[in-house]
Amino acid sequence: METLKIAFFCWESLGSTFKVGGLAPATTHLAENMARKGHEVHFFTRGDGPGDALIDGVHYHYCLPFGDNIVDYCRTMSNMLVDAFRAHDTPPFDILHFHDWHLVEAMHLLRDKNTVLSYHSTEYGRHGGNFGGWWEFQEISGKEWYGGYIAKAVTTVSNSTKTEVMWLYNVPGWKVTVIPNGIDPDAYRIPVDPGEVKKHYGIHPLAPVVLFVGRLTYQKGADLLLQAIPRILAKRWDVQFLFAGTGDMRGYLESAANGLPVQFLGYVADEEHNRLLNACDLVVIPSRNEPFGLVLTEAWSAERCVVATEVGGLAENIDNYVNGIKVPVRPDSIAWGICHLIDDPAYMQRLGRAGRRKVLEKFRWSVVTERMLGVYEKLLSGGPR
């Protein structure tokens, strides 16, 4: 493929101080890997640094939006980043790649270009598969529909998300390509002394540790894991639980966890995140809705065994009893999955090793980047429009 000039539009990145969730690493690492292949990649995003920066081969262009609510804020961001884009559109960009709904208004203004929209999730999914009644839900869902309508090509992170956007927004199947999120597995497999890490948190070195990593929101199901804990302790009294992440359910969860062997760690920096992954005995992903689930590939990269609810990308990617355990979205089922594994360290290690093998085969950035470039090539050669 000839060298392309590519514009990424995303409201968060690792190249700025604005990082909310998995969208930042997913888009940043994709941009970096495209730049390593010799393409000229520009990343239009929020940031409180200088207007422009070159980081790991990617050209960043920042703005500082404002607004009384999330919809107004994203409208301002779209207008500001379109101005920044036009200042760098000579020679013209070959591909404009938009990530999620936040910059759909920018895509509207630039809809005559070769535009790609990636759905990393939907507003419906972010609310755990519920239809919201408040006005922001309706506005955001409308933008997700319009983005799928005007984009020349669409990608989703899983087949379940493809089905979701086809069902919710009538995006035609021929327009959608499924491309999972990528990962650098070696970044997550680090040597640690599990006993020392556990002692740091006041846990006995031999006590089994169950780790939850994610936003403390309804979608991510931390409350389901919490409700499962008494059932787990009835079988194995010494299991300890670490919850890493922040979110609007934290206060409720902390109150509900009173008297249980649970610690809420809040935001955890990347280095400590990796230490926890490599020191824990089991990672649990109890989501009610999960388009892909970066925590899954991170845990597998660290050769950790996973118990996850059978939803979305988790259901698609886990081979049951081969590289993880899939359970229904219920506290008693989550408890059963954990209890099924917790007394058999050799079994958990075997599942974790199988998970890492799957990451190496399917989710490495070299594989994912080539697949995304294939979407661009098809669009430039007169494919889906």
Rank of each mutant, 00 (worst) to 15 (best):
L276K: 03
G195R: 09
V368S: 01
V262P: 00
T17I: 13
I318A: 05
E271R: 14
V306Q: 04
L64C: 15
L360A: 04
G355T: 05
T122I: 09
F243L: 05
G22M: 03
M1S: 13
G313D: 06
V239Y: 07
C280W: 00
R288K: 10
P65K: 08
E361Q: 11
S301T: 06
L110R: 03
P328V: 05
D281R: 05
G259L: 11
K198S: 08
G47W: 04
P230G: 08
H204M: 12
C63K: 05
R231F: 11
N320K: 12
A244C: 12
P291Q: 07
E254F: 05
H39C: 12
E144A: 05
F44W: 05
D238K: 10
D72A: 15
V157C: 06
V327P: 06
E105P: 05
T27F: 00
Q263N: 06
L242M: 06
F93M: 08
D193R: 13
V154I: 11
L54D: 12
H39L: 12
P208F: 07
A315P: 02
F9E: 01
G133T: 11
A346F: 14
G148K: 02
S255H: 13
A87G: 10
L265P: 00
V71G: 07
L168I: 06
R330T: 09
M348S: 10
D52T: 15
G49H: 10
L341N: 02
Y321V: 15
S158R: 02
W134N: 14
S381V: 13
T17G: 14
C280V: 04
C280A: 09
G67F: 09
L360V: 10
E12M: 02
L168N: 04
A335E: 02
E139S: 14
L81P: 01
V58P: 04
Y146S: 10
A84P: 00
N289G: 07
H340N: 15
N320A: 13
G147F: 07
Y119H: 11
L296I: 06
S78N: 06
P331L: 10
S118Q: 11
C280G: 00
A24F: 03
F363G: 01
L109I: 04
G15D: 01
G337A: 10
G355N: 07
G221C: 03
F66H: 15
V210I: 04
V368Y: 00
P286V: 05
P172V: 10
D186T: 14
C63M: 08
G182K: 07
V104S: 02
F85V: 03
L294W: 01
T369R: 00
G125L: 09
A299K: 04
E310T: 12
I203T: 04
G51A: 13
G182E: 09
I190M: 11
K220E: 00
L225E: 01
H273C: 00
